[in-house]
Amino acid sequence: MSAGATLRAAGIVFAAAVLQAGLFSSIVVRGGAADVLLLVVISIGLLRGSVPGAVFGFAGGIVVDLLTLDTLGLTSLILTLAGFWAGRYAETTARGRRLPVLLAVGVMTVLASVFGLALHYMLGEEVVAKQALVTALVPTLVLNLVFALPVHALVRAVVGERPGFEPSGEVELVV
């Protein structure tokens, strides 16, 4: 990534993280809230590749964890993997698909919820699986899908797509 694109991506990730912690997480619809930071990270991964997706996911997660005084690194781990997976998806199997953004957002919203629940559980925190996976997940999924295309368009306009972005033929399992 060029320096300008990196700065713009950092700016939009930072703004998304602050807005997520201060605004979007408090707008709860039917028990769920849109995860705009996740959408931005997925979009960066889809547009710029797996490494930028992972790096900006990590950075955005750190900002959220600092703002919310949550366990440091928790959101970073989830968003790192989300950004990386989105990038790899764009580099490999997203080719030829009509709506890779919606597919990536849908899959990553579910996986991020399950992974987040597992992490919180492993850390010994009080988590209610029904609340996380049933009550909150469905509205969160719907909201993320609603916001997915506008956010992706915004990220594309701000960060741009990687020039000469040529999907590779190799598929690798990371996790």
């Binding site: 992972a54 990590f58 366990t71 440091l72 690194g73 928790l74 781990l77 790192t80």
Partner: peptide, 11 residues
């Protein structure tokens, strides 16, 4: 990044 995140979580 994953290792760093795990270290941060642990610490």
């Amino acid at each position: 990044l994953v290792v760093l995140a795990l270290v941060l979580i642990s610490l």
